[in-house]
Write a protein that binds this DNA or RNA. Structure first.
Lengths: 350, 350
DNA sequence: ATCGAGCATGTTTACGTAAACATGAGGGCC
DNA sequence: GGCCCTCATGTTTACGTAAACATGCTCGAT
């Protein structure tokens, strides 16, 4: 009977209670324990009670490794991401976790600290060995598009924020539409044109916001001012704001996210350019704090919860139909939230 | 040979490549494949090459369920939390994920949407069945302290933000010390007393900040104004700010977090109370945006990354020594970041 | 040349679970 | 009243991996 031998360093065997132990105590077979454990019918009440009592007494907990081995699945979804620090990512992940939990799936986080090609590849490799049935990739950068990075075959994948829609299932906020709404709102207020603070160049979301901004202006026949380059941080927005405050004919700015908009607000405040009287500002994201900026920020609301929901839905569909990724892009609509950082240009503006 | 039978709906067997498949193709035993897979010595180069080639050809990926079953561990840490939305939680989780990854552990997220006793219990129960070797509980509320909630035995646990230090390993920011620094800073500037906007009553972190605020005032022999109750949101801070703006002798406020401080700033701005000339404001957390509030916020910096690091360190120690939770509280120091929202009171203040 | 040491590789077994099949007892139907 | 069917429960087996043990071959020392 002796297993593991007493010579094993640490000797941490036998600590875990198995079905066999419960079965022995309850005086039944382990199969009966299994039936009770899984709520199968066909176990007489008295027997069930005995088994349950034995389970309680021994503190039995099913071994999910054995279960997973048996069933061939883990009931777990992996989430690969670069950072949880951005509002968008953390809220998307939260929604993913919540919806996955509702479906009986757990979430395994696979962080990539530095987004180099190598690290991404490494994460995918590791992920292949990870106990996950499917993967959701939340990826700012377009590393996925280079072709170098190859997702392990046979893994169900949904990607957030990428243009790899021709090869993978992609779920994303409708960045272009959101940006369009923001710019049109400013033009409709009577501004001659709209300046723009971009996100980092490598960001897909940022690129699409910038493209849409440019397109709306061109279509409206307005001049396209040179975009100022930011990196999502409030600090970069502040720097851009200092520059814009010096542009006398700048009356409206579209920042690619709310934090950079915050930086703009501070810069304009310091430079004595009143918002929205002298300059209008629109952000993107609608972070919870945006309503309490000074002044409250007009911004494009992103429905991160819905993005998360659709991601889970997407991978679960793949898992359940045993189908591969169905290429295509699923865009979640945005809405413009108008607060007090935008107004018609004061008087002389052209 | 037929396994699973063709009548099985979906028939999703055989899709996965096992060691046996690789072994057959390479013309060796599965044990040799195992040795190659795990980098064991004692496999001649030519054999190793054959095996590797077979692995590549078949796209072999080790089955982690079988591995976990064999080894008796999952290399996974579970994280139970209520919300990822707060800056603190998401940054702590990120740090946990990063450090865990560095140690070869993955993170499984177990979200609890509504923090009722029942849900918490349910999460712990589910967690018992989950494929985790240890658990980190990030818990605002003191549900853990009621005794009703019982963590499954045999699971390694570290708790963040609780006073259950007598029963569990607790890692937390030194809330009291941070609050003390904030209040003393304001008193040192010459303010007669300091008002306070609290966090939600159920929050342990909030309670401790409030207690420390009161204690410093009492020890300094200053009057203790009635605290205003907030709920961490900028909105609640805004409401408190409107009330405080009406208190003529209020010259200094300590908000229990940065978002409420943001609400205060907006309220004071709207009411024409200039910060810091008329009123000084100190926050808590040092969220990245705090430096770009108008004015830039003086606040207490929390080192979330360090909290996450110590959590991982704590559970890994438990796992590796096969020891239970070592009761005790591990406090991470804070630092006061002085920006422009605090100043000496203008002239007449007492 | 002989024997054993050492090494590459194969065989057996166990990890915990649950489907599939087997068994046996009791009850209804003719 | 005998037969079969149903139902509760037991037995066998497989899931994929890797430790432990077994085998057989080569090479060096005597």
């Amino acid at each position: 009977m002796e297993r593991g031998g007493s010579g094993v360093p640490g000797g941490r065997r036998k600590q875990r209670v198995s079905m066999a132990d419960v079965a022995t105590l309850a005086g039944v077979s382990s199969q009966t324990v299994s039936r009770v454990s899984n709520g199968h019918p066909g176990v007489i009440a008295s027997t069930r009670e005995q088994v349950l009592a034995a389970m309680r007494e021994l503190g039995y907990r099913p071994n999910s490794a054995a279960r997973a081995l048996r069933y061939g699945q883990f009931n777990t979804i992996g989430v690969i991401l670069f950072s949880l620090s951005s509002t968008g990512n953390s809220r998307t992940v939260e929604a993913i976790a919540t919806h996955a939990a509702a479906e009986g799936y757990a979430i395994t986080l696979i962080p990539i600290d530095v987004p180099t090609q190598d690290n991404v590849l490494g994460a995918f490799t590791r992920m292949g060995e990870l106990a996950v049935d499917a993967v959701i990739v939340i990826m700012e950068m377009h590393l996925l598009d280079t072709g170098t990075v190859q997702l392990p075959p046979g893994v169900h994948v949904v990607v957030v924020d990428s243009d790899a829609g021709d090869r993978y299932s992609v779920v994303d906020t409708d960045q272009a539409d959101g940006a369009r709404k923001a710019v049109r709102h400013l033009l409709d207020l009577g501004h001659r044109t709209v300046w723009h603070v971009t996100g980092p160049e490598a960001s897909y979301a940022g690129q699409r916001r910038t493209q849409a901004w440019r397109k709306v202006l061109e279509e409206a026949g307005r001049p396209v001012p040179p975009p100022l380059h930011g990196d999502w941080s409030a600090e970069s927005g502040y720097a851009a704001g200092l520059a814009l405050a010096a542009e006398p004919d700048c009356t409206a700015v579209f920042a690619a996210n709310d934090q950079m908009a915050l930086g703009l607000l501070r810069a304009f405040h310091e430079r004595g350019r009143q918002v929205p009287r002298d300059i209008s500002v629109v952000g993107f994201d609608d972070i919870p704090d945006a309503a309490f900026f000074v002044p409250p920020l007009t911004t494009v609301h992103q429905d991160f919860a819905e993005v998360g929901r659709r991601c889970v839905q997407g991978v679960l569909r793949q898992i359940r139909t045993h189908g591969g990724p169905q290429p295509g892009t699923d865009l979640v609509p945005t809405s413009l939230v108008i607060r007090n950082s935008t107004a018609a240009p004061s008087s002389s503006s052209a």
